[in-house]
């Protein structure tokens, strides 16, 4: 079996995340096995590919690598402060995180205005 890291979800429980696995996928499995027993609601799961912003978390400790995440949901300042989409990060060590509500970055360009820029 592949190497694994522990994800501690603040106030909720722990998940085992295997090498190369998305943190969210490990957390979904952990909830399925009853390991996030103090989480009083279903884990927010959306696109699982960094686009929709539903699975926003704040990493408070530990190392990870990340795929690109939509800047409509995670600004550069957010990312520097440890705010990420849990579907787009791959833990490289044991990590600790806190589930954050989804967020929409103000001033994200609308589809229409941006399309005009390319026109």
């Amino acid at each position: 079996m592949a190497a694994s890291h522990k994800i501690t979800v603040e106030g909720a429980g722990e998940a085992t995340c295997y090498e190369g696995e998305r943190a969210l996928v490990a957390m979904e499995r952990a909830q399925g096995f009853g390991r996030l027993k103090n989480l009083p609601y279903r884990l927010p799961v959306g696109c699982r590919r960094g686009g929709c912003g539903v699975c926003r978390v704040r990493v408070t400790a530990g190392e990870f690598k990340a795929d690109p995440m939509s800047r409509a949901h995670i600004s550069e300042a957010d990312e520097a402060a440890g705010l990420v989409l849990s579907c787009a990060i791959y833990p490289l060590s044991d990590i600790e995180l806190r589930i954050e509500p989804p967020h929409f970055v103000k001033k994200a360009k609308t589809a229409a205005t941006e399309s005009q820029e390319t026109a």
């Binding site: 960094g50 686009g51 690109p68 800047r71 409509a72 994200a108 360009k109 399309s115 390319t118």
Partner: peptide, 11 residues
């Protein structure tokens, strides 16, 4: 397909 820093539909 257009590469951008956020997902969604242009038109």
């Amino acid at each position: 397909l257009r590469k951008a820093d956020h997902a969604g539909i242009d038109a």
